[in-house]
Simulated assay, not measured.
Amino acid sequence: MPPLLHLDQYPHTWTVQLLSGPPLIAPSRQYTYPMSIAGEEDALARGALYLLVRPAPGEPAFLATCALGYRDPSMPTGVYATPNPSQLCAVAGGYAYLIDPTNPTQSTHIDQRPVTAVLPTQDLLLFAGFHTIQAWGNAGLAWTTQRLTWDGITLGEATNGVLHGTGWNMRTDKEVPFEIDLKTGTHTGGGF
């Protein structure tokens, strides 16, 4: 699946252009993500998501090279606006990077790995993994759920401050519904 832009949920101060590869003439400012993480020295060998990011109108753009977490096409890849208008989220093959376009050396490689689904809600950007969900808000990490499932989360709708979804229960071999309070990250139900 080609990378997608998901920019309508939250206001933002930056613009981004998806590139099919590194540009022939690159801008003078270039940043590679993840930045110096043990065990990720060869991350770019799996491929990358290339972004031309402009922090604000009239400001010079920079190249963001975001290493793929996995080559599996089922892992999400795209760019998301976040609840923080001066931050963008690049998801590359299941790795999620929160980047400050005005200071690209300030980035967070979120520890939900892999990210299997991304869901914007009113005040939070949710990152589902195989067992848990992390929520990031305007001020950073808001919460991480307890384990919801033995393996695999399906996100449903977020209504009235509650996220609905399902998770697999190994003992019954069935999908079991759960509900998460979006303010606290506490849940009821689930397959674990």
Rank of each mutant, 00 (worst) to 15 (best):
M1R: 14
P3D: 12
L7T: 10
L7K: 10
D8P: 00
Q9G: 00
Q9F: 07
Y10S: 01
P11G: 02
P11M: 02
T13F: 11
W14M: 08
Q17E: 15
Q17A: 14
S20Y: 00
S20G: 14
P22Q: 14
P22Y: 07
L24M: 09
P27M: 11
Q30S: 02
Y31K: 06
Y31G: 08
Y33W: 04
P34E: 07
S36I: 03
S36C: 02
I37N: 00
A38P: 00
A43H: 10
L44F: 15
L44V: 10
L44P: 07
A45K: 15
A45Y: 10
G47P: 09
G47N: 08
A48T: 04
L49G: 06
L49T: 08
L49A: 06
L52E: 13
V53W: 02
R54W: 02
R54H: 07
A56R: 14
E59N: 11
P60G: 05
L63T: 03
L63P: 04
A64C: 05
T65A: 13
C66F: 05
C66E: 00
A67V: 03
A67F: 02
A67K: 02
L68D: 13
V79R: 06
A81V: 10
A81H: 10
T82W: 02
P83F: 03
N84E: 11
P85N: 09
S86A: 13
Q87I: 08
C89G: 04
A90N: 03
A90P: 01
A90H: 01
V91L: 07
G94M: 09
G94C: 05
P101L: 12
Q106W: 06
S107C: 07
T108V: 15
I110S: 08
I110E: 09
I110M: 07
D111M: 07
P114A: 06
P114L: 02
V115K: 01
T116L: 13
T116N: 12
A117I: 01
Q122T: 15
L124V: 04
L125R: 09
L125W: 08
L126Q: 14
L126G: 14
L126M: 13
F127R: 04
F130T: 12
T132Y: 06
L141P: 03
A142F: 01
T145I: 05
T145H: 05
L148I: 04
W150M: 05
I153Q: 05
N160F: 03
V162I: 15
L163E: 04
L163P: 05
T166F: 08
T166P: 00
W168Y: 15
N169M: 06
K174D: 14
E175G: 03
V176L: 12
P177M: 12
E179M: 04
E179V: 01
E179I: 01
I180G: 05
D181S: 03
L182H: 05
K183N: 14
T186D: 11
G190E: 11
